[in-house]
Structure formats: C-alpha cells, structure tokens
C-alpha cells in the first residue's frame, strides 16, 4: 500500500473517464478548481433553493385577482422611467470617466481677465483634438439631460399613481433626496468647463449660499471654497462631481431600488 493518501473522490479521474467536449472540460475543470478552494457548490445549492422557493408559487397579483388588466396596461411604459434613469446614469458615468482622462480642473493659464484657463483649454482640446472627443462630450451632456428628464417624469409617475403611500413613504423621501442630488450633479458639471455661463451660474450659487441666514458664509466656504470664485471653487465642484456625488448617488439608488425590490411595485387599483 502506498503511503500517499487515497483520494476517495478522484474528480480528475472521473473527468478523464467522461467523454467531454473541450468547452465542457474547461468548464468542469474550472468549477472543480474553484469548488475545492471556495466550496461554491454549497452556495450554488442555497441559491437554487431560494430561486425555487421564490418562483414556483406566487400569489395572484392584485391585477389578476380583480381582473383589472384591461384598465391600465397602457400605463406600463411609465413604470420603466426609474430604470431609464439608471440606464442614462450609467451612460453618463461611463462617458464621464472617459472625459476625465483629458479634463484638467484648473484655472491656471489666464494672463488677463477673460483669457482661456487650463480647464477651458482642456475642454477645447477634447472637442477639437481628441478622437471621438466631440461626440464623447455630447454623449455625456445628453445622457445627463435624459437622466434628469427621466427622473422628473418618474417622480410624476409615482405621484399620479399614488405609489408613495404607505408603506412607500421612505422611498419617496429618498427620491426627493435623489432628485436634489441629481440636480446638484448637473449644476456641478455645468461649472467645470469654466466658460462664461459656468462662471456666472456658479456666481449665482455663491450669492445664494451667502444669502442663507446663519450658515451662509460657512456654506459658501464649504461648497465654493470662498466668497469669490477661483481655483478653489473649480476643484470643489470637480471633487463633488466626480467623487462625492457618484458614490452617494450610486449608493442611494441601490438602496432605493433595494426597497422597491423588498416592497414590490405598487399596483394601481
């Protein structure tokens, strides 16, 4: 008898004895390799059980039970507006990440007032020199605008179908936060090219912040990096636009959709 431990379950020998195609062999080898290390078969089994529990029997939906289908099928497209917001958001994220390779958040380079800054120049460079850059910027802008439009309409859909009522109040409030953040996303992005309209939109922002009672100056410092616009403002808007907001908005969307998943869609009746 050899000293080597006997393998009761010699998967490799079993594999060899099978008559498998190349794809099947690769698949099984990978599966066995992973399973020996991570016990994925256990988890797959759990998933499968959950899948069958969740799907084999479903309660009759309200619509089916009261035979209301003929009354509101034409509202169905409005129920895709939330998903359309997410799709537009993803497209904006991807095109934004690509713009980020070329954009420089800096007001350096202007000798006299009204001269182009580094930020402005990098936008011009994107539009004129970068392959596909003009289209890229256009896609990013339009994806953002489609997202805002979809979010507005989604909110109207929720309002006019009364979908915010108990138990969905929390999701409505989350939604209000989300729409505010979406608009802030748009505003902070608008400032980045540091063109005339960007600058003066930000100027109005500072004036508004300063007009707030009690916390005005503090808010202006925090959001705009001071009372007059400059490098600090641009960098703050940049960090807000490409770092803070993406994390916050993505997490909030995940929670928002998670709650919809748990509570189910409110059916009209």
């Amino acid at each position: 008898m050899s000293l080597k431990k006997q393998d009761d379950m010699d998967h490799n020998a079993w594999l060899k004895s099978q008559d498998l195609t190349a794809i099947e062999t690769v698949f099984l080898t990978t599966l066995i390799w992973l399973d020996k290390r991570l016990r994925i078969v256990d988890y797959l089994e759990l998933l499968e059980t959950m899948y069958y529990r969740a799907n084999l029997q479903m309660p009759k939906s309200h619509t089916e039970q009261y035979d209301l289908d003929n009354k509101f099928w034409y509202w169905y497209p409005l129920y895709s507006l939330g998903s359309l917001s997410i799709i537009a958001y993803l497209l904006a994220a991807v095109s934004g990440a690509m713009l980020g390779f070329y954009y420089a958040p800096s007001t350096a380079g202007a000798v006299a007032q009204g001269d182009p800054t580094a930020a402005y120049d990098s936008m011009v460079m994107i539009m004129k020199d970068v392959q596909f850059g003009f289209m890229l910027r256009s896609i990013h802008r339009w994806a953002a605008q489609f997202m805002v439009a979809a979010v507005f309409l989604h909110m109207l859909r929720v309002y006019f179908t009364g979908a915010y009522k108990e138990p969905r109040e929390v999701n409505w409030i989350l939604g209000v936060v989300l729409i505010a953040l979406t608009l802030l996303f748009g505003f902070s992005g608008y400032v980045l090219p540091w063109k005339q309209l960007s600058f003066w939109a930000a100027q109005i922002g500072v004036e508004l912040a300063l007009a707030t009672p009690l916390v005005g100056e503090w808010a202006a410092q925090l959001l705009f990096g001071g009372f007059t616009l400059g490098q600090a403002t641009l960098v703050r808007m940049y960090i807000l636009h490409v770092f803070v907001l993406p994390f916050v908005v993505t997490s909030l969307i995940a929670i928002h959709v998670g709650i919809v998943w748990v509570q189910g869609i409110a059916e009209p009746h």
Binding site: A88, L91, A110, Q113, G114, D115, P116, T117, Y120, M123, V124, M127, F134, M135, R137, S138, I139, R141, W142, A143, Q145, F146, V148, A149, F152, L183, G186, F187, Y190, P193, W194, K195, Q196, L197, S198, F199, W200, A201, Q203, I204, T228, L229
Partner: peptide, 30 residues
C-alpha cells in the same frame, strides 16, 4: 440618446470672464 447627441451637439461659449457679466445668465434647462 446617441442619436440626439450626434445631431444636436452641445453649446460651448466663451471662457469665463469675472470682469464682464453676460446679458443672459442661464443654467441648463432643468
């Protein structure tokens, strides 16, 4: 989105000038 992006490219204006307020200041439509 792609269709609209390709037929209606975005506006791009003059560089920021703290010294001259434009006649019309506007954010995006939303």
């Amino acid at each position: 989105i792609l269709l609209v992006a390709s037929i209606l490219p975005s506006h791009f204006g003059d560089p920021a000038n703290p010294g001259s307020t434009p006649a019309i200041i506007l954010p995006d439509w939303y």
